[in-house]
Design a protein around this nucleic acid. Sequence first.
DNA 1: CAGTGGTCTAGACCACTGT
DNA 2: CAGTGGTCTAGACCACTGG
Lengths: 252, 252
Amino acid sequence: MAVAGGGTAEARYRQLAASLREAIAAGAFGADGRLPSEEKIAQQYGVSRGTVRQALAVLRANGLVTSRRGTRRVVLGTARTQSFFELLSFTRWARSLGEEPGGRTIDVTSCPANPLECEQLNLEPGSQVCRVLRLRTLSRVPIMIERTLYPEHIGAMIAGLDPHAISHTELLTEEGVVFADTEHTIDLVHADADDARLLGCNQDAPLMRERRRATDHSGRPLLWSDDRFLPGTVAFTVHNSVATTALSRRRG
Amino acid sequence: MAVAGGGTAEARYRQLAASLREAIAAGAFGADGRLPSEEKIAQQYGVSRGTVRQALAVLRANGLVTSRRGTRRVVLGTARTQSFFELLSFTRWARSLGEEPGGRTIDVTSCPANPLECEQLNLEPGSQVCRVLRLRTLSRVPIMIERTLYPEHIGAMIAGLDPHAISHTELLTEEGVVFADTEHTIDLVHADADDARLLGCNQDAPLMRERRRATDHSGRPLLWSDDRFLPGTVAFTVHNSVATTALSRRRG
DNA sequence: CAGTGGTCTAGACCACTGT
DNA sequence: CAGTGGTCTAGACCACTGG
């Protein structure tokens, strides 16, 4: 609960969200799973209704509760596995599974970007970029090939690293780099010669590909990555709530 | 686009979000892409700051703008393709691409659910379920096999349909069924004999699989589906914004 | 230090649900 | 019709950014 020295106190609505999350996990709210009204919750916790709504919005985004005008909210799911996307880092993802993340840097090169790369990283033509090729392991078993492209100023921080360093993302974070927004695209590709050699599969074997493009707070691209996973090692999950645009009342 | 007679006027913050979206697409906000302050926008549109914040929250969730305490918001991306997940229906997705969606129902059966299915649909053991197997086409080309499991009360609406009906989801929606929450899981599988025969690929060919589990507003499962796409026909995209937990000021 | 977004409050009105 | 969540307002204070 207490915040580590130097940080800011956690917002009340986040504390409240955490409390409600616990209550849900503990199975309060009975068999039908109906939450108290927003007003009731506000009174119970001594906050305003607005704050309660902020907290509930968090739970809703996480797929834990419903929300619909006219009726109480209802518990949707009690469990909650953290989505791959929210973790933003292979290392954190592995740890959240209780597995041991590993990484071996195969190659790091700096060279001028080609036109496609310039567009992806929003750079001037001919700008320098840093290319990193890594093999990622889970409890020593190879499961993913990561091809990452960094703009010069980020690449400079990477270049000097120990090739056995486990997490580049965490090191960059410590340097104050913030991955504020990321877009992920998932599809299926066939292993090329490098993929096959490093992952120990046949060439043309099917792989799950996740491409990530991350920017900082001001929208400046920080990274563009092409990650290829062996089948059966990851599944990507997404949750979705409708924008409640209900119809008019039926047979009023 | 317009709401059918009897609907409610669109919320102001949604109208505002749409306006801002247009402004972004039109390239207002100059080369640096900095938005006006929330206060300014509120004055310009004659609404309160709270409403502006609601509108901006929508844009942020869509990955269009950043947000960060202390600085103006910044345009992240001008384009905006509607994510596969938001459309919630193969038919709508196809139409949004300007393609012609098609579907052929291969088989519909009603029988008691097995234990796994009962758990997925949260049913009493031995409950009746409805299984539907469909082949989906895009401009007449087969691209996806859909295996959907409905609980009895939904299955009853499906059973009587024309086998050539294009969209089951839309028909259910017209009947007042609301898919309020959906969870998607994406992975890679190999084609079984049925997949291969219907999609015209080899057995064991790699396919992208999307499993969906949808519930209504009260959390009652409406459907559980296993959809398998031929490679190269879809890519799944997700956007991600960090919960701005910045560090303390650096060398203040 | 001025500007800006994040958090919080208190109150109001409305749309929708279920009985 | 009573209860509930959705929308909107007006104002306040704070934390953080950048010059």
